[in-house]
Write a protein that binds this DNA or RNA. Structure first.
Lengths: 197, 197
DNA sequence: AAAAGTGATTACATCTTGTGTAATCATGAC
DNA sequence: GTCATGATTACACAAGATGTAATCACTTTT
């Protein structure tokens, strides 16, 4: 007989998501979460550095997947293409099969400024990690930062579309579209050399 | 004789920036800030919604300036150009003449993850406000969002360069360069029509 | 000029988040 | 069988944040 019921982290995450959904993030106390999960406050803070972090359990796994894909990417490809392919692969592996759950979780996050700030922080950290992974392959540091930033902006544009009600296309297919939208937004560089015929 | 010394907000902001600089954000308590400013904790929280907000007093003014410029912008120009011109104008008006102060403030922010999250939140809010201002001029909502996002990414790239040690060029001149860098990063749209001869 | 109202500040109490430290005790290793 | 491990708990406490009512120089009204 185990001393404690297993899956403490899972229970805390589930209880928190439920409560945040039911009554909002701010009106939910950690005391309520741990009560529903059958644990103590100290245990909550043993597993999560703060109240918000309970919603971001998968972000480190996501980051590892992406930088893994980048490290394994084609050496000859330009940085942006490497990152885009990595994002497409990860879209299939970690997002596509749980659209409803991801939508739900993001709705909870979007409903609260504090959670949105944390999400933005994760986004920025991931951008930095991608840039670092690109630099590790060798290449101009500034170009790495630019490629990472542009790719993550495309990711954001595609993700917004993917979570839109009624949208059915796959995230991996929305990513190239997002990139095209960015190209269209930027227009053509007046100083660029003419296209080959 | 005034009942209280005037400039309570300014004194709080100054004391906070000093202390954050001296001992870091986390190791500084609100009690220390108000002691240095000669006020009480309750007064601090009357003026600032939380401890971080004391560093972001100018952000609402910045936002108003930018959306004002956008509203007054040339009707015929494409959205991205309207935003870029607004950012250039505001760069001159609010940044150029206090490079040292801005650098210093940003160094304090960059040194702490919580402050960085708040900065990202302000950045995102400004992006949304710009998109809203563009939509108010009429035009595709998605195009407005894209133009706002791309412009703010260019702003970020230019700002990074502007605050780099040794950099002397003006922010307004770094903005078009940042846009060019983004175009170069994205490369050319394979589906784009050929450039006119 | 007296009275009444305003608004920034203060005093006090309280809730919530987050941390430090030591104790508990089933499980698995030796 | 003994021992080390590690997740959980108990307890105390600092710091951030909020609600409420009181203060009182200054301004407006009468």
């Amino acid at each position: 007989m185990p001393r404690w019921k297993p899956g403490a982290v899972d229970r805390l995450q589930a209880a928190a998501l439920e409560l945040f959904d039911e009554q909002g993030f701010e009106r939910t106390t950690v005391a309520e979460i741990v009560q529903r999960a059958g644990l103590t406050q100290r245990t909550f803070f043993n597993h999560f550095s703060d109240k918000r972090e309970v919603l971001f359990g998968l972000s480190s796994e996501l980051q590892q997947e992406i930088i893994g894909e980048i490290a394994a990417g084609d050496e000859a490809l330009p940085p942006l293409d490497v990152v885009m392919r990595a994002l497409e692969a990860v879209a299939d592996k970690m997002f596509e099969h749980r659209r409803a759950v991801v939508r739900h979780r993001y709705a909870v996050i979007a409903a609260n400024p504090e959670l949105l700030e944390r999400e933005l922080g994760k986004h920025a950290a991931l951008t930095e990690a991608i840039a670092a992974a690109l630099r590790a392959r060798g290449g101009d540091p500034e170009a790495a930062y630019l490629a990472a930033s542009v790719a993550m902006l495309a990711q954001q544009v595609a993700f917004r579309a993917w979570t839109r009600p009624g949208e059915t296309r796959a995230l991996r297919d929305l990513l190239p579209e997002a990139l095209s939208s960015l190209r269209a937004t930027l227009g053509h560089d007046p100083e660029a050399p003419p296209l080959p015929a």
